[in-house]
């Protein structure tokens, strides 16, 4: 995203990189320290979510609802942070700044294709033309058997009376 720092000077902003905003008409201006803090807060929550995910992966057990509720609580905090960005009453006073130092290995995304799905897929037989032929012949044989049985019953009925 295009962004530039600037400094307030006589009720106007001196842009450090004015060439970025030549074609744009609307700008959004935040105090840089506060914005960095806000960014760090959300990153902290996200790191928490990655830790929940990694813990679950380490246990080799499916997630349970306790972990889901924990994750949803963290997500609610993120929603609140997002809302507080445009709330002028909300002032972050604490000189607290989180810098994300979470290792990339914890953030490793996983495919939704799990080992269980793979196991199911492996049990699906390969449908080759020979197999198709075999299945059709099975159907023909079954129909043949039914047909002969019906024919025999007819003959029996004719003989009986």
């Amino acid at each position: 995203m295009r962004y530039s720092y600037g400094i307030m000077d006589q009720r106007k902003i001196l842009l450090y990189k004015p060439q970025l905003f030549l074609k744009s008409r609307d700008l959004l201006v935040f105090p840089s320290a506060d914005f960095r803090n806000w960014h760090g807060d959300i990153k902290e929550y996200l790191d928490g979510l990655f830790q929940i995910d990694f813990q679950e992966m380490g246990k080799r057990e499916p997630v349970n609802f306790t972990e889901l509720n924990l994750a949803l609580g963290v997500l609610n905090n993120i929603t609140e942070e997002l809302e507080s960005l445009f709330d002028r009453e909300n002032v972050s006073l604490l000189p607290y700044h989180y810098l994300s130092t979470l290792d990339e290995k914890y953030k490793k995304p996983r495919s939704p294709y799990t080992s269980d799905m793979r196991r199911v897929d492996l049990q699906v037989p390969v449908i080759s033309p020979e197999l198709k032929y075999k299945h059709r012949m099975e159907m023909v044989e079954e129909a043949n058997r039914e047909f002969t049985r019906a024919l025999q019953e007819k003959k029996m009925k004719k003989k009986d009376p």
Binding site: Y3, Y5, D26
Partner: peptide
């Protein structure tokens, strides 16, 4: 006065 700010395009 003299506060550092960060500027984004709104879009």
């Amino acid at each position: 006065e003299n506060e550092e700010v960060i500027i984004f395009t709104r879009e």
